[in-house]
């Protein structure tokens, strides 16, 4: 099968890769670029474990044809931390015990990042809406919500 050329800005750096026309973005990220932080579970846009940011907005990378990323910015969980230092959201997840089995964590972080970029001081309801497309099958939502609120400038009421 012939391939097509995809050029995108991935985690801040321009990347060019030959992709199958039928490849989904998550396949290119995981299998070709070896960025395995992004997970796949349902493959149907129901669980959010494959969430990445496309031009700053959360999308299900299992449903996005890779070639839709042409010329656009993609941010994956690998792009969150700066060298030697975790992103404030990652620190908050660790501090609050918001990581259980960990499988939903990359997607949760990306949805949370998109929220805090738009709205640094969200309410609990806004956090819950923002992560409504991300399922945690450990059902550890309370700690995830607390961590996101904490990472914002919001004072968590205890």
């Amino acid at each position: 099968m012939t391939t097509q050329t995809l050029t995108m800005k991935l985690n801040g750096e321009e990347v060019t890769v030959q992709v199958k026309p039928s490849a989904m973005l998550v396949e290119v990220l995981r299998d070709q670029l070896e960025l395995t932080g992004t997970k796949v579970a349902c493959g149907e846009g129901e669980c959010g474990s494959c969430t990445v940011l496309l031009d700053g907005r959360p999308v299900n990378s299992c449903l996005v044809p890779a070639l839709k990323a042409q010329g656009r910015e993609v941010l994956t969980v690998e792009g969150l931390a700066s060298p030697g230092e975790l992103h404030p959201l990652q620190k908050a997840f660790v501090e609050h015990g918001a990581v259980q089995c960990g499988y939903c964590t990359p997607g949760m972080l990306m949805s949370a990042k998109a929220l805090l970029d738009q709205n640094p001081n969200p309410t609990e309801e806004e956090v819950r809406v923002a992560i409504s497309g991300n399922l945690c099958r450990c059902t550890g939502y309370a700690k995830i919500v607390e961590a996101i609120l904490d990472a914002g400038t919001h004072e968590v009421e205890r």
């Binding site: 846009g45 959010g48 969430t51 496309l54 299900n60 449903l63 949805s111 998109a114 497309g133």
Partner: peptide, 9 residues
């Protein structure tokens, strides 16, 4: 519709 991820696409 669906979820934030679906609504963005």
């Amino acid at each position: 519709v669906g979820s934030p991820q679906i609504r963005n696409m």
